[in-house]
Design a protein around this nucleic acid. Structure first.
Length: 318
DNA sequence: GCGACAG
DNA sequence: ATCTTGTCGC
């Protein structure tokens, strides 16, 4: 059972939008994120512009500054605030004290772009309304996780019985082009996870949240609904909500359960299960902090990545 | 200064 | 998630 999940090339879109900033003007990381459809992607925009040096075409990164007009730590040739400032001044943008002067006058926000994040959020809304919260009788659990080396993704599924005893493993390898943006994790990892789906009679335990998500559509929900398999989310840290007894509340609704003390994990419904069943399966397979299926998948994916690194090092020597 | 967000 | 020295605990 294999499936393809189509996801936009976020990195390419960010570069394409930045290219629209005309000579003699500047924009902010937030402006670009807004053009993509969600300001909350602004830090992801900054990260990509700073880190991704091999680009499909020239990108005027020096024309992107902070919201207060400050010139950042430009990473292009020469690097440094000074370099960026002089590049901007050469284009006619006045910079003083590390800041763009008359910022509003030189600020460009008139981008022409598809607000992809907006449509991806809509898709999440649809997923949220498609989630079925009834128990599914299962005798196996597939833990699923993904590790990375740059854009190379290594996915692993480890199938266990209800006590966490392993009886099957599977791995997959592919490239991804959607960087991590809070609340949009599924679009980064789903193309990988979808290829590891085990079928409608296996509970898929995903490293991440299910309904415990601002739009009630975390990666476990999306995997479950789009592949029509039962799923639960097990997260190691909180994305949203507040703690109340053993519960996690979002807008006054119990969306998650806290399992374990000290550094607990947060369990929530993905699809075709209930919060009670999700918690039960989690507790039943939890020998240490993280339940066995997910813990093993995490280790396996990491090992696959390390092997890849070894292969790469061998290649670079040859 | 506050808030700050799965992986 | 990933980058990483020494440190803590079993």
């Amino acid at each position: 059972m294999e499936a393809r999940i189509e996801v936009p090339d976020l990195r390419y879109m960010i570069f394409a939008i930045a290219t629209q900033i005309p000579k003699g003007m500047v924009s902010t990381y937030g402006d670009i994120a807004r053009a993509l459809g969600d300001v909350r992607a602004s830090r992801a925009v900054g990260k990509i512009m700073a880190a991704d040096l091999d680009r499909p075409f020239p990108v005027p990164c020096h024309r992107v500054v902070y919201t207060d007009g400050r010139v950042g730590w430009y990473h292009g040739s020469g690097r440094g605030t000074e370099v960026q400032a002089s590049m901007l001044m050469a284009e006619g943008v006045p910079v003083g004290n590390g800041q763009v002067m008359e910022f509003a006058k030189y600020r460009f926000t008139d981008f022409v772009a598809e607000p992809v994040l907006e449509s991806l959020a809509h898709r999440q809304d649809q997923v949220a309304s498609s989630v079925i919260e009834t128990e599914t009788r299962v005798e196996a659990i597939a833990g699923i996780d993904v590790a990375y080396e740059g854009d190379r993704a290594f996915g692993a599924a480890v199938v266990t019985d209800l006590s966490g005893e392993v009886f099957e493993e599977r791995t997959v390898e592919m490239n991804v082009r959607f960087s991590y943006v809070p609340t949009y994790l599924s679009y980064r990892e789903l193309p990988v996870m979808a290829r590891l789906v085990q079928g409608p009679e296996v509970m898929h335990m995903v490293d991440g949240n299910g309904r415990l998500h601002p739009r009630r559509a975390g990666i476990a929900c999306q995997l479950g609904v789009e592949m029509d398999v039962p799923s639960i989310g097990v997260a190691k840290s909180l994305l949203c909500g507040s703690l109340d007894d053993g519960n996690v509340l979002v807008d006054g609704t119990v969306l998650g359960r806290i399992v374990g003390d000290g550094r607990p994990v947060y369990v929530s419904v993905g699809h075709r299960t209930t919060l009670e069943q999700a918690e039960r399966l989690c507790r039943g397979t939890r020998h240490v902090r993280v339940p066995e299926p997910v813990r093993r998948a995490h280790i396996l994916a990491g090992r696959l990545r390390d092997e890849f690194r070894g292969r790469q090092d061998a290649d670079s020597v040859a």
